[in-house]
Each structure stands twice: as C-alpha cells, then as structure tokens.
Design a protein around this nucleic acid. Structure first.
Length: 580
RNA sequence: GUGCCCGUAGCUCAACUGGAUAGAGCAACGGCCUUCUAAGCCGUAGGUUACAGGUUCGAGUCCUGUCGGGCGCGCCA
C-alpha cells in the first residue's frame, strides 16, 4: 500500500521536475507516515515541506502543485493539504479491510519478510563468563538479544545466535582454584577460601563432588597454602595459590577442577537459557582460538603490518592510529596474551565466516572497549562497518527500597533462575522486552513478584485467549465460521473496527522498523496497542449476537487479530495461550 | 579530570528517528458484570519534556553550555 503511494507521488514529483518547479537534479526522499489522528487521513507526507527550500516556494503552495500533478488512482479517495504543508491522503475503505484477507491468507507468515530476502547476520549475546549462574542482569541481555534475533529473522534475515565462551584466562584459573580449595575443605584440610575467590554455594557443591570421586588424590597441606600466600596482597596471593595448584597437581590434575567447574557451569547456563526460550546455534570457545593458533596468527599478521611494537617487554597494538585514545597491550611482559588478543582473533574470525553483519550485544560497561576492537578489524583490513555493537544498560535491582548488590565473585545476586521461578519465563521476557536497550532501567523485585498480574503481557495474552473463547462459543452455538471476503467485509466500518484494521495493516512495517532500528521493544508496544483496540471492540460489540452476515465479517476480523497477536508474541518469544 | 549513555505525568516507561494537540500502564477519583472470560471496558485528574541559549517552516528528538544520575578510562576479564 505504501509502495503504491510511493509510486504515485514519485510520478507527481517527476512531473514537477519536468515543469522545472523543482531543480531536476534534486534528490528527494519521499516519506509516508501513518497519521496519529483520523482527521488527518490514513497517510501523510511532508514532502512539500522538504521541497520548499530547493524550489524556493512556500510549502503549502508546493503541496498544491504536487496534488495537482498526482495521477488519478482508485486507491486514493481524497487528498488534503493541512497545517504547514502536510499532504494528507485518504484511502479507499476497500483498501482498509483487505488486510483481513491478507492476514488470513499468510497465516503465521503474515508480517514476516520472506526468509533469505535479507542479510546473513550473527547475533552474539549474553556470553557471560562461565564462572557462576546467570543473574538478572544477564537476563536482560538474553531477552534483548534473543528478541532482536527473532525480529531480525522475521524481517527476512538469516540469523545465527552465538555465545562466546570465555574458557581461557585468569578468571577461569580463579574458578578452578576456588573449587580446589572447597575440595580441600571437604577433605578436612583447615584452610580458608580467599575472599577474592568465588564464594557461591555451587563451588562448595563441586568441591564436595570431587572429594567424593577422587578422595585425597589432589590434597596438599594447609601449611603449603599458607606458605604460598605468604605476606602477599590479595590478588598476588591468589595467583600464588593458583601457581601452587598447577605445580603440585600438574596441568592434568588442575584440569580436573577446571574442567568440572567449566562444564558444570556451562551446562547449567545452557539449561537456564533453554528454559528461558533462548537457544544458540554456536557455543564458541575462546580456548579454541589458542589451540587452533588463531591468536598467534593474528598477532603475527599485525606485527608484519607494523601495527604492533614492543615496549617494556610487552607487545603493544597501535590502536591510536585508528582513533582509540591510547595504545593497548596484546602480549604481556610475561609472554601471556591479554584478553584483547583473543578478542581480536575472535572478531576477525567472525567476519571471515562471511556474515554481512555481526552484532554484539554488550553490557554498557564495555563501551570503552569498542574503539579498540574496531581498530583491530581495520588494521587487519576487514570491514569494521560489518560489526555493530549494541549496548544494554544493566538493570538496577531494588528490594525493600534498597539497591540489591550484584557481584558474581561474592555470590550475592538474584539469579535469572530465581526470577523465572518467581514470575515465569514469559513474563520476565516480556518485562525486559518492554524496555529500550540503552534505557537505564529500575527493576523492583517486590513489584515484579507481588503484582505479576499487572505485567502488560497478561493483557496481550488475555486478548488472544478471549478471541479463542469466542470461537469456542461460536462452535457451541453451531455457528459455522467461514472467513468473509471482499465486499462482505465492508460492514467493518465502526470506530473500533477501523482502528483495529489500521493496526493490523501496520504489522509488516512495524517488523521492518523494529529490525532496522534493533528495537524489539517496538513489537511489545505495538501488541499492547492491538490488545487495547481489541478489548475496546470486544466490550462495545456483542459479536456472536450480531446478524449472521455481519457476524461472519466480525469473526473474520477476530481471526485476523488473533493471528497478528500470535505472530507478534512469537517474535518476542512469548507464548499465546488459548485460555487463561 | 576526560569520554560515552541517560534525564519526559507521583512511579515505571513510549513517542513511527525532525512533524500536526507529547501518549500508555500502575497509583488516585467516578461509573460498567442475570449478556461471547471484569486478568476487561468507559470517564476524570495529572506536563514549562532537568535548566539556559542556538539551528528552521517546525525541536522531547540536532548543536553549545550548565546541573543531576550511570558507566568507562589496567601488562583485569
């Protein structure tokens, strides 16, 4: 419909160019908007206002000329010029109710662009360090990332979801050693867990499990540990204990603790996300970048191109040459690569896998990290425009009017699983999906739990369930439903019906807009609008008591509304129950 | 100190990316169930879009400054 308007107005503008009203070389972006008020017709365009300057005429006068040059067409019944120079277009009513048939014909594909019509896109999200259960902060990233992936694929893109597993580096050593200490305690060794190690109960459980499986095979004395720590400060003391564990147990022995911790936690995360409705195509291991030699390769390549220099025994990447504020270390003085080194290899690998677009969903605390990753891609001769980093603000949790602390190491946090148990996966997803990603967000746990029925999701689902019930009741009353078509739908001209029809017609545009702007929250607001329009309609009309012919048309509208609600909820990854 | 994000009704958030009279939900007040699910509907009230300038036909949206909040600025990840 918009395309048709576009073509008609383009013809009019070409005509004006030919008449030399507008400079013929002027580039025009023709935009149509759905109007907010009925008096303004169905669509409006501001083209006359944007042309005012190049044409050196006042907008209203230009609007007159555009309208005069507009070819006749059945679609348009009336055109008005309003305000400072808007051109308001009124469409033929048959164009309005035709949407019902379109919805029913397309079914669960309505609003969705054909698969493969878009780009090849990867969405990497959550990627939390596998050092403990996911907390509600990760939940926002999970809900946003997955809804984004769904919106993008609804808009026709081929989407892959990826989780980058940080299974290398010091954090994992700390986790391994935390489990080891708990294991020692389970074997009766009188030692304490350093306060900067992982404190969670899950670490205790793993220690107990390993003590049961391996007995005292990996035990050292409490004195050895005390001696290793010596008078060192916190972090250095922890490193000393890690070194002790590695030297006494060997790589293989330490690996027992490390691997169990990693696998247990990763399985838990995978299950947690699965129950949240989030499923990944790829779990990409950071360690594999080392074992496959990709980190080395990328460092050598940057050395060869002169982007890496040595200073103070460390290797530095000249990221300032690509707009970063300071240069960054990639290989430390002690020969250990930094996290940045593997991240360069990871992002290079992503783009080399042939995605048109690689989206990273990151917590906003990582925003300072973006310039150096972009720098790395540019230095490697890759197209950094293909990387898009979307930042999600972490939610601030409130309980009893106080901020809830969130520290993984201290084991003090509300887990995603707790939240799902309290309010359910669907409600949690919908709640997160209602917020724009970069918006700061307050999450009041007491409110979320005690007033869970006030979650707008129920409002939308209720509209769906109500429609299902109407059809149940129709069947009980022996009313046979056969979708009305064409002129039979012309009775749908009440205020509520027109509002509903207009909304249903907007759905495909909405999906495109939500995808183009990476804003899945647009879908949740849209669904609420559809539900509002339906509930109002429902209360105003006794559908099953209407005259048979009108009743068929009304039921057809209900069926179309139900379909759109279903499709929209599915884009958010939320269910559409048939009864509530 | 410096860089990025944010500031909209009492609270939580929208606003089709520069458009017409800034909208919803909670909370408050008043109505609607012997009638397809009241998890609903209808109505009332609530605003100097943090503040001050600027850009233009037109600004919550863009530019500058100020104030307030969050987050970065490691040979951590």
């Amino acid at each position: 419909m918009k395309d048709q308007l576009h073509s008609l107005f383009s013809q009019a503008i070409e005509q004006l160019k030919a008449d030399q009203v507008i400079p013929s070389d002027h580039q025009i972006t023709l935009m149509f908007e759905r109007t907010r008020q009925r008096e303004h017709g169905d669509f409006a365009t501001n083209v006359a206002m944007t042309l005012a300057k190049p044409a050196r005429r006042n907008p209203r006068e230009l609007a007159e000329l555009v309208v005069a040059a507009l070819p006749a067409d059945d679609l348009i019944t009336k055109v008005e010029i309003a305000g400072p120079g808007f051109i308001n277009v009124f469409l033929d009513t048959s164009a309005r109710y035709a949407v019902v048939s379109n919805v029913l014909a397309a079914g669960d594909q309505y609003g969705l662009a054909p698969a493969g019509s878009g780009q090849k896109v990867m969405v990497e999200f959550v990627s939390a360090n596998p050092t403990g259960p996911l907390h509600v902060g990760h939940g926002r990233g999970a809900a946003y990332g997955d809804a984004l992936a769904r919106v993008l694929s609804a808009a026709g893109h081929a989407v892959e979801r990826e989780y980058y597993v940080n299974d290398a580096g010091r954090q994992m050593d700390i986790l391994g050693v935390s489990v080891w200490i708990r294991y020692l305690q389970a074997n009766g060794i009188d030692t304490t867990l350093p306060e900067n190690a992982y404190q969670g109960d899950y670490v205790v459980e793993m220690g107990n499990q390993l003590a049961a499986e391996h007995g005292d095979a990996y035990v050292v004395s409490a004195e050895d540990i005390t001696q290793a720590r010596g008078e060192l400060e916190l972090e250095a003391a922890l490193d000393a204990v890690i070194a002790l564990a590695k030297s006494r147990l060997g790589e293989a022995g330490f690996g027992v603790f490390f691997e169990l911790a990693l696998n247990t936690i990763l399985d838990d995360i995978r299950q947690d996300l699965g129950e949240f409705g989030v499923h990944y195509d790829t779990w990409f291991s950071e360690r594999s970048l080392y074992t496959d030699g990709k980190v080395d390769a990328v460092v050598k390549k940057l050395q060869a191109s002169g982007d890496i220099y040595e200073k103070g025994g460390a290797l530095w990447f000249k990221t300032t040459a690509y707009g970063d504020e300071k240069d960054r270390v990639v290989v430390r003085e002690n020969g250990q690569p930094t996290y940045f080194a593997s991240d360069i290899a990871y992002h290079a690998d992503k783009l080399e896998r042939g995605f048109d677009l690689a989206i990273n969903v990151w917590g906003s605390d990582h925003h300072g990290y973006i310039p150096r990753v972009v720098a790395a891609l540019q230095a490697l001769g890759l197209d950094s425009e293909k990387l898009k980093v979307l930042l999600v603000q972490f939610a601030v949790l409130w309980r009893n009017g106080e901020k809830v602390p969130m520290s993984t190491r201290k084991g003090e946090f509300v887990t995603l699983r707790d939240l799902r148990d309290e309010i359910g996966s669907d409600a949690a997803r919908f709640f997160y999906a209602q917020r724009k990603s970069e918006q700061h967000m307050d999450f009041d746990l007491d409110l979320a739990k005690s007033h869970s029925n006030e979650n707008p999701m129920y409002y939308v689902q209720y509209a769906h369930a109500r429609i299902c019930r109407i059809f149940d009741n129709a069947a009980e009353r022996d009313i046979q439903f056969k979708a009305a078509e064409g002129e039979q739908l012309a009775v749908l001209d009440g205020e509520h019906e027109i509002a509903l029809l207009t909304l249903l017609a907007r759905f495909p545009e909405l999906i495109q807009s939500a995808a183009a702007n990476y804003e899945p929250h647009q879908v949740s607001y849209y669904l609420r609008d559809v539900a509002t329009a339906f509930h109002a309609y429902y209360n105003a009309s006794k559908i099953l008591d209407a005259e048979p012919e009108a009743r068929q048309a009304m039921l057809t509208l209900c069926a179309a509304t139900r379909q759109v609600l279903r499709n929209g909820l599915s884009v958010l990854g939320v269910g559409a129950p048939e009864s509530m």
